[in-house]
């Protein structure tokens, strides 16, 4: 369980994280989503006691990170995959981390085996491919068999096989009852792995809900008709709200599709299309974060 309470981080004039309060529950994969620069990594570093919050607190299993006697046994993390000394072997990297938390050296071999790096264990980490570095980072995160995991953009730069491996691993970790917080700027990736979503933009909480609540019918209906101007006026007289869609279709809210069909039939208006609109997770995300994208392309 991770609890954030009013977490705020100010870098000079810039508010990187602005009063974030949310809870990450065990047994689920919680996607931590936001455009680049939204404050995801800063928030994760604050949970891990690396960045110091300007105000607010974050607790892991009820305690501040700095008060954990053996942090790796409580919370594992993957931040930057390259945070390994390039001349140090994978085994030595994991060994020193294990020693800090009084973990047996045999545990190093276990996690190396788990991520499939046994054969590369004695090679310097500097020669590792991105995929291998990511596996080493995952091995470090799992070293203390922690009930809480923080993974910052774990699939970034991986090939499809690596992506699938991480996805399966993450689902498995949550199924074992662990608390898993995974950040990403890709909604499509989260659609495949996450149970819940925490969406932030410009450091602020935008939405927090089960993934199903982000998709589905948003209540709008697309209507295509050759008599759009007059039918739009007719719909508005009946209390619906109408705006023009992208290709001349009408986007109607405030009235159900069957009612619109009956109205069109009664008025003798030919309809070419009448579709309740479904939003994909991707669209929902774009809609949610539209105002908080740092450098958006001109539309």
């Amino acid at each position: 369980m991770i609890q954030l309470n009013g977490m705020t981080k100010r870098h000079g004039e810039v508010l990187a994280v602005d009063d974030l309060t949310f809870t990450v529950r065990p047994g689920l994969v919680t996607g931590f989503l936001g455009p680049n620069g939204a404050g995801k990594s800063t928030t994760m570093r604050m949970i891990l006691g690396l960045d110091l919050p300007t105000s607010g607190t974050a607790t892991v299993n009820g305690r501040l990170h700095q008060d954990l006697p053996h942090p790796l046994r409580e919370v594992g993390s993957l931040l930057e995959a390259q945070a390994v000394h390039p001349r140090r072997t994978a085994r030595k990297h994991l060994l020193y981390l294990a020693q800090t938390n009084d973990l047996p050296p045999a545990r190093v071999d276990e996690v190396l085996d788990l991520v499939g790096l046994t054969d590369a264990a004695d090679r310097p980490a500097g020669v590792f491919s991105l995929g291998m570095s990511q596996r080493l980072g995952i091995a470090a995160a799992l070293l203390g068999d922690p009930p809480v995991l923080l993974l910052d953009e774990p699939v970034n730069g991986l090939d499809p096989e690596g992506v699938l491996w991480i996805r399966t691993l993450i689902r498995g970790l949550a199924a074992e009852g662990r608390t898993v917080l995974v950040s990403s700027h890709l909604m499509s990736e989260m659609a495949l792995t996450a149970d819940r979503l925490v969406v932030i933009g410009k450091g602020r909480l935008i939405a927090e809900a089960a993934i199903g609540e982000f998709t589905g019918n948003d209540g709008a209906v697309l209507v295509r008709t050759p008599e759009s101007a007059s039918f739009a006026r007719r719909l508005e007289l009946s209390g619906a709200h109408v705006r023009a869609g992208r290709d001349g279709e009408l986007v109607v809210t405030g009235m159900t599709a069957p009612d619109m069909g009956r109205l069109a039939a009664a008025e003798g208006v030919p309809l070419f299309e009448l579709t309740p609109r479904r939003t994909s997770l991707e669209e929902a995300f774009m809609e949610l974060t539209r105002d908080s994208v740092e450098y958006g392309a001109a539309r």
């Binding site: 690396l50 990170h65 700095q66 008060d67 954990l68 942090p71 790796l72 930057e80 945070a83 470090a140």
Partner: peptide
């Protein structure tokens, strides 16, 4: 400094906790 140069200082702080 070798920890700052390679970026492992973060891993070390996250692993040890108390600075």
């Amino acid at each position: 400094s070798s920890e700052y140069g390679s970026g492992t200082m973060r891993a070390s702080v996250a692993a040890v906790g108390g600075r």
